[in-house]
């Protein structure tokens, strides 16, 4: 394929994007919504995915949610709002950034921008046990979002879509910011679990975002609290005991690492309170 001598190339097939990425290497970048690359990578050649059909598709049925990488935060919020198991994702997509940015920034941009440390969709999808499907020059690969975030895929790839299994559980997403809205979150907790009427949490998944460079699961806290009766106070106490052992808070202009750790227990407690309230039909 001839490489056009242009600084913004619109491709219509994923294979074209991969081909260009392979040939142009570090001099090019994928452009999805553009809200990161327009700020951070203006000197590179943009390979725009906007003209690829199907990448904005979202399908939701009783079994599974599938979201194309070019779906925007707003598209995702509109699609999942009202589903109790996907409440964490609806909040992450519907409350992050600002209305104008939510109409532009995409799922793929949120999960693939490794230098962006405050992604909301990443912890929400970790708590929902999402899988990502990538296109690479050697074919299609599906892996857990957790593996994708933990182990950088250095080969050229396009994140094609994300799959979320649906279960009869509840989820919540709690974010702390300096102001009520519009900033990056200082710390994020996403949580999902099935709640027994006596307050026991089953199959608990907790993900933390914005505290370290990349969102990740809080496995140690999950192990302590899974299959236990938990109130927001009891889980807060467990989280307070573990936070500084399990995370190294990130210092940045918007907040110090110690502060991000200090607020984590309260965010976990709030998330448990939120899922308990929705379970009671509040």
């Amino acid at each position: 394929m001839e490489i056009p001598q242009q600084s913004l190339i619109s491709v219509t097939r994923v294979s074209q994007a991969l081909d260009l990425l392979t040939r142009l290497g570090e001099t090019a970048t994928v452009m999805a919504g553009g809200t990161w690359v327009m700020r951070e990578a203006r000197e590179r050649t943009f390979i725009s995915l906007a003209e690829i059909p199907d990448l904005t598709d979202i399908t939701l049925d009783d079994q599974v949610l599938v979201v194309g990488a070019m779906a925007t935060h707003q598209d995702i919020c509109n699609a999942v709002i009202g589903a109790p198991d996907l409440a964490a994702l609806a909040t992450a997509a519907g409350k992050s950034a600002t209305p104008a940015i939510r109409r532009m920034a995409t799922l793929g941009g949120n999960l693939c921008t490794r230098d962006f440390h405050s992604a909301d969709l990443a912890p929400a999808l970790l708590a929902l046990n999402a899988k990502v499907t990538l296109e690479t020059s050697s074919g299609r690969e599906t892996l857990s979002l957790e593996d994708y975030l933990n182990t950088p895929v250095d080969r050229p790839h396009i994140l094609h879509h994300v799959t979320v299994p649906r279960t009869s559980r509840r989820s919540a997403h709690v974010r702390l910011m300096q102001r009520q809205a519009g900033d990056y979150p200082l710390a994020v907790v996403s949580l999902s679990a099935a709640i027994h009427p006596d307050g026991t949490l089953h199959d608990l998944r907790i993900a933390v975002g914005s505290v370290e460079e990349r969102a990740r699961r809080w496995h140690a806290l999950e192990a302590l609290c899974d299959d236990q009766k938990m109130t927001s106070d009891s889980i807060r106490a467990h989280a307070a005991a573990r936070a500084s052992q399990d995370f190294v808070g990130r210092d940045a202009v918007d907040g110090q690492g110690w502060y991000r750790l200090r607020v984590l227990p309260a965010l976990v407690a709030q998330a448990v309170s939120d899922i308990s309230l929705t379970a009671q039909g509040a």
């Binding site: 600084s7 913004l8 553009g34 943009f46």
Partner: peptide
């Protein structure tokens, strides 16, 4: 409504 500072004209 979208922010014009982050919209490349080429799109």
């Amino acid at each position: 409504p979208k922010v014009s500072c982050l919209l490349p004209v080429g799109r």
